[in-house]
Design a protein around this nucleic acid. Structure first.
Length: 421
RNA sequence: CCAGGGGUGGCGGAGUGGCCAAUCGCAAUAGACUGUAAAUCUAUCGGGCUUGCCCUACGGGGGUUCGAAUCCCUCCCCCUGGA
């Protein structure tokens, strides 16, 4: 089972640090999970996992299911054995997010947040030719009343190649029909055997209308009841988190937080879309954390930009997961104390990425010019080392955040990082 | 010396009379990435500005043509055979 103790909390703010314990181990919070979609980290050999500074990982039910990895996990005796990280805490996502990312999100080329720069670009050059070049732009139309302001086009139905009904989700896999629903997701997640499981939910998009977001949220609440019900038939070793939805709408977010927060679950995910800007994310999170029971952990699903982490911790979030450290590493982006750096711009330097960094790349003295040569040669070592580095960076970042909460210097830490991020 | 093939933008390599400042790939440059569709994607990539046009460009020179990277002549260079 799971227990959560808040070890540091200032009365005047929602910021808190704590310890999350499961039968497998414990982590201090706030903490960010490294995403191991297929139960392994991209561009890292599996036996490197146990050397990582990260204590928390998240594995994806949809991908391990569709790629037929779950039987291998079962054979290995569970996800901890399969990944060879017995003492670490592992979560599984329910597969609900893939309904969005492979369905609506893919069709409309949209993520969990609408990017600010696209909106700005759009304002000034709506009628220029650039318009047709980006599919995202078709979702914006001129506000005819103001002439210059923008009105977002919203979808009233899911407009989704994946069929979502009360029963669950239907999709095609290798040309054959397939179904995912709360009961199946619980079953799969039990087989995987992570410490924390997520309820089966639907992640809505910033392009969904209020009406659709509400309809979807209410369905997600019913799916939560079914997830809880299905979970009860299994052994109580795994902790099931309920997921708050409601998009960017305050009344929906508050309603969802009340309903999900009232359920007999040991923790919560906060999912879905968060509107257009970073301020919107922080505001949306604050509506939710104001209502959720404070003694239980909150995991902000899929968020991990550094500014977003600080602002969410500020609002009382304990757990995160994000692909940014690993994905951007493969995309040649380095995270450092001086900001994000494109390796491309540093490729002539015969020196390691960062002094005083404990990652293998920096300890072994791998130079940035060497990394660049490996990238050009498509040598996997390049992304292996950059991935190790970015993971170390995020592990250090989260440790600094925890220490700053305990030392009462959280806002100074935040200001330091806001100078570069 | 003879025969055959070839010389195209930083590199590789299309194009064989107009739609060619020249497909495409690489490199370069700038950017993106938030419960992984992603070791991916987007944009720029001869020069100038009043962004539509002008200039310079497909080895050098000359010619044919309204028009040439593309056809002809000539020179230079490279590759493959043969003396």
């Amino acid at each position: 089972m799971l227990s959560f103790d808040i070890t540091s909390k200032k009365n005047s703010t929602k910021v808190r640090a704590g310890i999350l314990r499961t039968s497998c181990g414990e982590i201090q919070t706030p903490e960010l999970a490294i995403v191991a979609t297929d139960a392994q980290l991209r561009s890292l050999p599996n036996d490197v996992l146990k050397e990582l500074p990260s204590r928390y990982f998240i594995v994806n039910t949809y991908h391990t299911y569709t790629k037929e990895i779950i039987p291998k996990i079962e054979t290995a005796g569970g996800i901890h054995s399969y990944m060879q990280i017995p003492g670490r805490i592992i979560a599984t996502d329910s597969g609900g997010f893939q309904v969005f990312s492979l369905g609506f999100g893919r069709k409309h080329n949209i993520g969990k947040l609408v990017q600010e720069n696209i909106v700005n670009f759009n304002k000034s050059s709506m009628s220029s030719l650039g318009l047709t070049r980006r599919s995202t732009l078709k979702h914006f139309v001129m506000d005819s009343r103001s002439g210059s302001g923008m009105t977002r086009f919203k979808f009233d139905d899911s407009d989704n190649p994946i069929k979502i009904t009360e029963k669950g989700v239907e999709f095609e896999l290798d040309g054959k029909p397939n179904v995912l629903n709360p009961e199946i997701s619980m079953d799969l997640q039990h087989t995987i055997g992570a410490d924390i499981m997520m309820a089966f939910d639907e992640c809505t998009s910033p392009l969904n209308s209020y009406e659709y977001t509400k309809k979807s949220m209410e369905r997600t609440h019913r799916w939560l009841d079914r997830s809880i019900e299905a979970h009860q038939s299994f052994e109580e070793k795994q902790a099931l988190f309920g997921i708050v939805q409601g998009g960017e709408y305050q009344d929906l977010r508050e309603e969802s937080a009340r309903i999900v927060g009232s359920k007999e679950v040991p923790g919560f995910g906060i999912g879905g879309s968060f509107g257009d800007f970073h301020e919107a994310l922080s505001t949306t999170v604050s509506w939710v954390t104001a209502i959720l029971p404070p003694e239980k952990p909150r995991h902000l699903l899929g968020i991990g930009k550094i500014r977003d982490i600080f602002s969410a911790v500020q609002e009382g979030v304990d757990l995160f997961d994000c692909v940014i450290p690993t994905r951007e590493a493969r995309h040649r982006m380095l995270y450092t104390k001086k900001g994000r750096l494109y390796l491309r711009k540093l490729k002539h330097l015969d020196e390691p990425i960062e002094k005083n960094c404990a990652c293998r790349a920096c300890v072994e003295g791998v130079t940035m010019s060497q990394l660049w040569r490996w990238f050009l040669a498509h040598d996997l070592r390049a992304s292996t080392y950059t991935t190790l580095h970015n993971i170390q960076f995020y592990a250090d970042l989260m440790r600094e955040i925890r220490e700053s909460i305990e030392n009462n210097t959280f806002s100074q830490r935040r200001e330091y990082y806001y100078r570069y991020y």
